[in-house]
Write a protein that binds this DNA or RNA. Structure first.
Ligand code: FES
Ligand code: FES
Lengths: 149, 149
DNA sequence: GATATTGAGGACTATTCTAGTACTATATGA
DNA sequence: TCATATAGTACTAGAATAGTCCTCAATATC
């Protein structure tokens, strides 16, 4: 289904929630209740997000989390990159030298074209776009030609 | 990693091979040897591709497979769609009514924007593009604005 | 200063999904 | 009729994912 893992989904929901109210800090419990995701899972993800510098944390009583960046600065590509590693649809697009079935492959470097195409698509959507009631990325043109070098 | 399953990868390799030589039919064994993928797996995938109308099959001795469409008519989006189902990065983008954590979700229909963005990207690359030594999709512009309705 | 609250960090388990294999039936050319 | 090749289905082992739990560290409040 070319689907994201549930955790990536959750992460997006959590970040959207944080972005929609940047004023004060939110405890893990608060986030869990607001999003409907189980507390232990939320907790796990929040820690991850702090490590990745997307969130800041405050420890101790009355502690919690808030966004460390502006919503415009976090794109879907960033989130996916964090949760699932670099966007690489196949093994052989990571190393440039082709994968196992090297011998018979007529594709070669074409995967990297596809990867970049998808990556650009995901980069065109930011957290800010996610929370706007009906605002959209103004007009992002993705000339496939420009992806090549 | 936002990665495709291996089977999808294999399928692309197999289809590319078929596309690079549309003249005569290829037996499963021939495809397996050419691509380096294990025969049983190749066989399984070829059957699937026939069912999906991407390939035609000829049964019996001297039988085999060949492309049922022109390489330009098969896009990466088609292949992924076949192997992994409709491109839907998350559960809730399938049904329009939101997923489990409905209550606290500030995202709503925004997923479908992302899905369409990615889908368009993948649709811009066809099998023909994959086999051309260095040809690329001429110039596909993806105005994100146009994805919305 | 004691205590309650909240995050940090890591380990562990159950479950689900994927990949790969095997086996039987059917069609066709020689 | 036999050799060859696809059609269809069922099964198994392995890997990845999701989710939970437990202990330690920091801080606010009383
Ligand atoms: S080398 Fe991996 S698909 Fe071609
Ligand atoms: S309803 Fe599923 S992520 Fe919002």
């Amino acid at each position: 289904m070319l689907k994201l893992s549930k955790l990536t989904d959750y992460t997006t929901v959590i970040l959207s929630f944080m972005a929609s109210n940047t004023a004060h800090i939110h405890s893990a419990l608060e986030v869990a209740e607001a999003t409907g995701i189980a507390l232990p899972t939320v907790s796990k993800l929040l820690k991850l997000l702090v490590k990745a510098k997307f969130l800041r944390s405050v420890r101790g009583a009355k502690g919690g989390y808030n966004l460390a960046k502006r919503p415009e600065e976090i794109t879907m590509a960033d989130i996916i990159n964090l949760m699932e590693g670099p966007i690489a649809l196949t093994e052989c697009s990571i190393t440039q030298q082709g994968c196992g079935q090297a011998s018979g492959c007529h594709i070669g470097g074409k995967w990297s074209l596809i990867n970049r195409t998808v990556h650009n698509a995901l980069e065109s959507v930011s957290l800010a776009d996610m929370i706007m009631p009906s605002a959209f990325p103004s007009e992002v043109l993705i000339p496939v030609k420009s992806l090549l070098r």
